[in-house]
């Protein structure tokens, strides 16, 4: 009986950890992407100084969250996000609104996509 209880406790712990990871991923993805609207508006208004400042804040948040994301998600996904960050940074430096806006949208999609892939749904299982 002791072993059954131990097994159930370990299983419940792993399950709990799993649910915690899903919630934490959603929260941190929302945290990283919350300034994206401001950057997008700044790009549309060609306010490059503000766009760069906001983007720097986003990059700092990403660098903070990236450390623990790497323990959970596919490293290929992290490489995609890093690549997209570099591209957006270059487009902002070259003050190209079309490319910067497009790449920012791709970056947002890459980040929002991560918690989606971890959610429990029929599409993700089957």
């Amino acid at each position: 009986m002791k072993y059954y209880i131990l097994l159930i406790v370990i299983f419940a712990f792993v399950l709990g950890l799993g649910f915690f990871v899903i919630a934490a991923l959603s929260q941190s993805a929302a945290d990283i992407t919350e300034n994206f609207e401001k950057i997008s508006t700044a790009i549309n208004n060609e306010d490059w100084q503000k766009a760069n400042a906001e983007f720097l804040l986003v990059k700092e948040k990403w660098d903070r969250h990236k450390k623990w994301w790497a323990m959970i998600i596919d490293h290929h996904e992290i490489d995609n996000i890093d690549t997209s960050f570099s591209r957006t940074n270059e487009y902002l430096n070259h003050r190209n609104p079309a490319l910067a806006g497009g790449e920012l949208s791709v970056l947002k999609q890459f980040i929002k996509h991560i918690p989606e892939t971890e959610k429990i749904s029929w599409e993700n299982i089957f």
Binding site: V21, E118, I125
Partner: peptide, 10 residues
Amino acid sequence: MILLIIKTTI
């Protein structure tokens, strides 16, 4: 992580 558990169990 939960997905891995569900998939592995199935």
